[in-house]
Design a protein around this nucleic acid. Structure first.
Lengths: 125, 125
DNA sequence: CAGCATCCATTCAGATACTG
DNA sequence: CAGTATCTGAATGGATGCTG
């Protein structure tokens, strides 16, 4: 075989890409881990919202203030989507007017190295 | 400050996210390295095309055969986009009918670890 | 404060048919 | 063989106005 593991170089086969049997999908499937991750990051503003939350817990209003050009509708959408994928945790405080704070879950924190890898690739010439 | 570097834990500040001064953008910008990387990976089928090329050089027809449900139009679009972002190199052989082969550039090979990071995050419960 | 409802412009991907 | 051209439907994102 001429190209047993092009991506890994001369080392042993690594789990994941492109050696993993799951990496044989002939079409995009929602179960593919890469698809799962890219889906979690998908959408304009998504990574900026995550970046703000990597710096700490924020309320909806604080996020809106940090990203002034992001509309309420899209911010709501992003936070709901991130909650659905288990990246953020939503905490509604009792009282009036309601304040809602968002923080990253452990899974969300784990996105740090992923974003780091993306950053490093994008920053390289 | 309560949250100097949530993502990095107790270690020293790392370059990149979220400590890098460039990571202060208040809106999505094409120059942000994370945007650059996600833009390179954006679009349905894109990562599958890259995965095939991680296994070695392929002609247009080989890629089409490996991904039978991917239309010519979208495959062309993906390859052109990947060439524009410096991920793949296009090599048109002389003669008729023309055969065109594609291989990853060094920059394209460098996507291996990035996809690996995405895979690992997506595969984790 | 933290959203939801509605409308609209743009982008995207798949299907089909044709060409250097 | 390796594309290009055109069309259509679906998804996306922004603006505006209203509500628990």
């Amino acid at each position: 075989m001429a190209y047993p593991t092009v991506s890994a170089g001369p080392g042993p086969a690594r789990p994941g890409l492109p050696d993993d049997p799951l990496a044989r999908a002939a079409a995009p499937t929602p179960g593919c881990p890469v698809e799962v991750a890219l889906d979690a990051l998908r959408g304009r503003w998504t990574t900026l919202v995550i970046r703000e939350l990597l710096r700490g817990t924020h309320t909806f209003g604080e996020l809106a203030a940090a990203l002034p050009d992001l509309s309420d509708k899209v911010l709501t959408d992003r936070l709901h989507r991130l909650a659905a994928t288990g990246v953020v945790h939503r905490d509604r405080a009792p009282g009036w007017p309601t304040t809602v704070s968002y923080r990253l879950t452990a899974r969300g924190q784990a996105l740090g190295p992923v974003l780091q890898a993306l950053w490093e690739w994008g920053a390289a010439d």
